[in-house]
Amino acid sequence: MSSLKGWKDLPLATTVPASTSEKVQTGQWRSMRPVWNEEECIHCLQCWIQCPDKSIKATPEGKVTGIDYFFCKGCGTCAAVCPKKAIEMRPESEFIEQ
């Protein structure tokens, strides 16, 4: 409890500044990991637009560059919507060593 702020240090009126959730590492929830295959990817952005967690990384020009594992919860939607099967879902256990 000691790391939590006391009442005098909290903003009034229940307010919270915008976007503070960006510190929350929801990637820890993941049991299956999407692995992106750059060679197969046609950059159609279907994974990018369908990801509920905005975890597909892309350049401003619209090129997919990978997966944001800090946030990705491993739902597999990206793999399911990929027309080229360029994303494979693999168990997190395979990546423990890394």
Partner: peptide, 17 residues
């Protein structure tokens, strides 16, 4: 933004996004 805690695969955040 990122870091919301809807379930994996939930449709609601997709709707909002």
């Amino acid at each position: 933004r990122q870091g919301h805690r809807m379930c994996p695969g939930c449709g609601a955040p997709t709707v909002v996004q």
